[in-house]
Design a protein around this nucleic acid. Structure first.
Lengths: 227, 227
DNA sequence: CCGGAGGGTATACGGCGTATACGTCTACAC
DNA sequence: GTGTAGACGTATACGCCGTATACCCTCCGG
């Protein structure tokens, strides 16, 4: 039977974990399987499909293994969403090579569809109007994927924070926004904490979608009473 | 003078716009400049730096050209942020090749730092506590970059929506969350509208950060009164 | 006995980024 | 003028990459 294909997939995953995405070449995978590069093409249509299969494999491990037919009303929806997000983050931190691939391929595997379904269910359970559910799903997944991708790809590491990053020698007084908040400009020690705070904000965003504004009473933030 | 470097940069940008990021090879750029590939290395340390310079160039065009010393209190902060986000989206839609690069490199060019500064200023102006400003800046930029990257990289195109995407032949009844909201499962015709709705939600998220919850009064969404 | 099919190999092509070595042209000190 | 140093460009080559093409072997049903 075609256990060979999974053997190839496992080899590719192992190489990616050990040497990064650039290490995953058809030649390297073939060597690890113990076979000639061209032999891979009997089981995989090309490198693109191999990469797809790799992210598919990762996403498969995201959902709990369908722990039985009945499990009651599960947890509260916030917990379900947060758990999914945390699990996703943990997975990408464990396999950073996946980050660049996550934006290109839509959630196409069965397990990915199930993950989306879990989000739909949570949103519905939270009381979000049906019409808004897909948009909010996209908003949430976009943020979560983006956050983790930023984290592992280096977008967050000092640069937007400390403007003297090699090349950016600004006149120093040209950044009034930075100056005011200088004490808070360092990257937090633990991005997990920031991730939690962001998730919290997004949960509130969802709650707000449950009780939509009537568009009156929304007289911008504060009518006049600021300082 | 070093006009040669900008000539190289322009050639690379032109190729990227015409043939995509994969078309940008040192050989192709060199040919367009009318020079041998190795000649590029006199002006650019390697391909990585060339790519960095390309995104730097794009980001430079984001901010208004510093329209004079005084321009009053500018617009309301929501408008400033939204304009920045819309400008960013338009830019990436015009140059889709930039999407994969945006997560890897921090905002390191002077103009990028100025863009971040504009966001800081808007958040401060909105009344966000100083401590929270950098986190919210990261939250906003992460979402905006993620949204546009998803848009141009195909993550949004049917797949998470319509679960029958080639490979994902699920038992059909296995996706209760999808079933319930079937009428809304199609991608909106115009993602700009969804982008606006998302921005709106994020503006409300910011307003919520201005008036932080005291952590009482937060008895989860609705105490008991749902259905 | 045969024949096809599934799996593996060998070879090759065209592309890539770039290290190294060599030329050439200009500008300036003497 | 002459020498020389540096900036700029070229030529060649190395080692990778993905994969098209053609061939080979082994097994199994008829």
């Amino acid at each position: 039977m075609g256990g060979r294909r999974e053997e190839i997939l496992d080899a590719a995953l192992a190489i990616a974990d050990e040497r990064g995405l650039d290490g995953v070449s058809m030649r390297a995978v073939a060597e690890r399987v113990g076979v000639t590069p061209m032999a891979l093409y009997r089981h995989v249509s090309g490198k693109a499909e191999l990469l797809d299969a790799m992210v598919g494999h990762l996403l498969s491990a995201l959902l709990p293994p369908d722990a039985g037919p009945d499990q009651g009303p599960a947890q509260r929806w916030e917990e379900g969403l947060a758990a999914l997000a945390r699990g996703f983050r943990a997975m990408v931190l464990r396999h950073p090579w996946a980050a660049p691939l996550l934006f290109s391929r839509p959630a196409v595997t069965p397990d990915a569809a199930r993950a989306v379904d879990a989000i739909y269910t949570a949103l519905t359970e939270a009381g979000v109007p049906d019409r808004e559910v897909p948009r909010l799903e996209r908003l949430i997944t976009t943020f979560v994927i983006g956050f983790v991708a930023s984290e592992v790809s280096g977008r967050f590491t000092s640069g937007s924070l400390d403007p003297r990053g090699r090349r950016g020698r600004l006149p120093e007084g040209d950044l009034p926004g930075h100056a005011r908040i200088k004490p808070w400009l360092h990257l937090p020690d633990d991005l997990a904490i920031e991730f939690e705070a962001d998730l919290d904000d997004i949960m509130r965003l969802i709650e707000a979608a449950v009780h939509p504004r009537t568009d009156s009473e929304s007289g911008s933030s504060t009518p006049d009473s600021s300082a």
